[in-house]
């Protein structure tokens, strides 16, 4: 009986992850950008584009989490805003670390204006851990 309940519980967890990852998704990937190097911005967007191209936008759940200096990718003025909009239209999610936003607000004297496709999360690193607990694979380009 205990084994049966265990199997049912395990199946329930798997179903839960599957539902959160999307009904038809074969892969769930989170990309981290926390580097000040501007080339990393291009790189992380290129990687996202390649993932979508390889798996197909309906077969992958993809989220880019930006924190620390990497949050500049999600500034409203960022020169890559057209690419971010294009990726967002394919279902890619963009998460912006609130801790970083608050720290930058102190330096700037005002909160940085964010890309409209960016969704603030309480902490970037916590968001990554949460996603990994749900079965996402972490990639740091």
């Amino acid at each position: 009986m205990k084994k049966i309940l265990g199997i049912i519980a395990a199946m329930g967890m798997l179903l839960s992850v599957s539902a959160q990852a999307g009904d038809f998704a074969e892969q769930s990937i989170v990309l981290q950008i926390s580097d000040p190097n501007p080339f990393k911005q291009t790189l992380v967007l290129n990687v996202a584009n390649n993932i979508i191209k390889h798996y197909g936008q309906d077969k992958v759940n993809l989220e880019i989490v930006a924190f620390g200096p990497g949050l500049r990718l999600l500034f409203a003025e960022n020169a890559n805003q057209d690419r971010i909009a294009a990726l967002s239209s394919t279902g890619v999610k963009f998460s912006a670390c609130k801790n970083t936003i608050n720290a930058m607000a102190k330096k700037l004297g005002h909160p940085p204006a964010l890309n409209p496709n960016a969704v603030p999360v309480s902490a970037g690193v916590v968001r990554i851990v949460d996603l990994m607990n749900k079965g996402y694979k972490l990639v740091k380009p």
């Binding site: 000040p36 190097n37 501007p38 911005q41 500049r72 990718l73 500034f75 003025e77 960022n78 020169a79 890559n80």
Partner: peptide, 16 residues
Amino acid sequence: ANWLMLQGTERPGTAG
């Protein structure tokens, strides 16, 4: 992408 912009400005949100 013109000379005024290439020589006088940086790409916003990306320049180091």
